[in-house]
Design a protein around this nucleic acid. Structure first.
Lengths: 103, 103
DNA sequence: AACATTTTTACTTTAAAGTGAAAAATAAAT
DNA sequence: ATTTATTTTTCACTTTAAAGTAAAAATGTT
């Protein structure tokens, strides 16, 4: 009965419990601008999308070994920030490395 | 006189000195499959592209705050490995977050 | 055999990630 | 309006692991 599919938002404590973290951790993520819960008054409410995102984010961290800053960059890259900074010849150089990596 | 533009490959000690790291660090990167120096016998020779890549890699680490595993993933993503794992609705959800982030 | 490079082992350093507890802030209740 | 309760914020601390390195052992080259 953790989540009622019809509810559209969840308070921080419930989300923290669901993710198995301290609610303080969610404030921490917010400071990194990694999540934007809705505010009703001063209280935070997380949408299902928020929760899915947090869960995926933590998978990237604990299954893929990424760190928070990289995840931020991963998001920004959808606006081409990181590769924008990467010189062209280095980008091309990536392709050589790709050949060596098995997926 | 660190680098002769006409030379096509550089031994590990020279590269380490240029990057300001211990040569052991370059072995370390290699174990992560982040670089593939050419081998003549058992000895390693790094190309200019290798060196540029290493330099860029370290910028990502020390200026952007990325970790090695994330850099590996960044490379692989050119083959869509990471976002391939990411559920579509989460990908769409990224767009909302993008709006909140200033570049 | 002598030399140089590599590999392995285990260690050090450093900072990220997370958290506890108290203080501050805000809303609700009486 | 004052008190009570709840959430947020701040500060400082702990834990953990990534990143890097030193030293010794192994290996290949000449």
């Amino acid at each position: 009965m953790l989540f009622d599919e019809n509810d559209k938002s969840y308070p921080i404590e419930l989300v923290a419990e669901f993710l198995g973290v301290n609610s303080r951790t969610l404030y921490y993520y917010e400071k990194f601008r990694l999540v934007y819960p809705m505010r009703r008054g001063r209280k935070r409410y997380y949408s299902k999308a928020d929760i899915r995102w947090l869960k995926y984010m933590r998978e990237l961290m604990y299954e893929e070994g990424m760190n928070l800053k990289s995840i931020i960059i991963l998001i920004k890259r959808r606006d081409n920030v990181v590769l924008g900074k990467c010189p062209d010849d280095v980008v091309n150089c990536f392709k050589n490395y790709l050949m060596h990596i098995r997926h």
